[in-house]
Computed example of a mutant assay.
Amino acid sequence: MFEPSLRGSVTALALVACAALGACSSIDNSTRQFVGSLAPYKMEVVQGNFVSKEQVEALKPGMAREQVKDILGTSLLQDVFHADRWDYVFTMRRQGTEPQARKFTVFFKGDVMDRVEGDAMPSESEFVGLLAKSHPVKSVPLLEASEDRLKSFAVPAAPAATAAAAAAVPAAAYPPLETPSAP
Rank of each mutant, 00 (worst) to 15 (best):
M1A: 13
E3R: 13
E3F: 01
L13W: 09
A14K: 07
A14G: 08
L15K: 13
A17I: 15
L21P: 06
G22I: 07
C24N: 11
C24V: 14
S25G: 12
S25R: 13
S26P: 07
S26F: 14
I27G: 06
I27M: 15
D28P: 02
R32D: 08
S37Q: 12
P40T: 14
F50H: 06
E54L: 08
E54C: 02
E54D: 04
Q55M: 10
Q55W: 01
Q55T: 09
V56S: 04
A58C: 05
A58I: 00
L59P: 05
G62W: 01
M63G: 00
A64Q: 10
E66T: 09
Q67K: 15
D70G: 00
D70I: 09
T74F: 11
L77Y: 04
D79Y: 00
V80G: 11
F81N: 13
D84M: 00
R85V: 04
R85F: 00
W86E: 03
V89S: 01
F90A: 02
F90K: 00
R93P: 01
R93T: 08
R93S: 11
E98P: 06
Q100K: 13
R102C: 01
K103H: 12
F108D: 00
F108G: 07
V112N: 01
V112L: 00
M113I: 10
M113N: 03
V116F: 06
V116S: 03
D119T: 05
D119C: 05
E126L: 04
E126Y: 05
L130V: 05
L131I: 10
L131C: 04
K133S: 12
S134K: 14
H135M: 12
V137C: 00
K138T: 10
K138W: 03
K138Q: 11
P141E: 00
A145T: 06
E147Y: 09
D148F: 03
D148H: 09
R149Q: 15
R149P: 02
R149D: 02
R149G: 04
R149N: 11
L150T: 04
K151P: 03
F153C: 04
A154P: 02
A158P: 01
A158T: 07
A158L: 08
P159C: 06
P159M: 08
A160W: 02
A160L: 08
A161T: 05
A161N: 09
T162W: 11
T162A: 12
A163G: 07
A164N: 06
A165M: 02
A166M: 08
A166S: 08
P175Y: 09
P175I: 07
P176E: 06
T179N: 13
S181Y: 14
